[in-house]
Amino acid sequence: MDQDQLALRVSNGDEQAFRDVFDMFNKRLLYLAREIVSDATLAEDIVQEAFVKLWCRKETFDNLTAIKAFLYLCVKNACRNAYKHAKVVDKYLSRQETPVEDRVVLVKMIEAEVLDGLHQAIEKLPNGCKDVIYLGYFAEMSNQEVADALNVSINTVKTQKLRALRSLRGFLKDLSPGILLLITEIFYR
């Protein structure tokens, strides 16, 4: 299998393969860590550490799922440790008695996985569409602001939104009502 080939290359010390694995997983891990520790710098440290650990033990992995699980667990454990540490520091939090529950983290992991899939779907859109979606939706700009930012006419923005709507729909086939709403929102803003 292609993916396990990648794992093998990593275990043989192939740096390009390591970079590919990094590209594949770093965003989900960053997302997860940030969600749990609510501190961007700390989250980056945690993810960095996970990849460094992976590189140190690269020989022990023969498939990609194992690598993925390893990275997630590193992040999860580091978050828990960070939390425990912070708990001692912060009296208020220690009074609350709200440990980083495995369930909460587990659920966040699944969320990170699903979001990653959606994000990849959006990434596959043609460039013009993507810009419009990123500015219009993620940066919450109005059609006019997007038009100004991209130096195009407002009609172009509208057309691109429509195109994005169509291609995203094509990609996601028959959408569930929820995601449909999201796309409609993008379309309307």
Binding site: E111, Y137, F138, I179, L181
Partner: peptide, 19 residues
Amino acid sequence: LWEKMVNADYIGGRLSEWP
């Protein structure tokens, strides 16, 4: 989690937080 994953507002908000 399931309800969140099929909620467009939630997904949209989360994706805007994506690294």
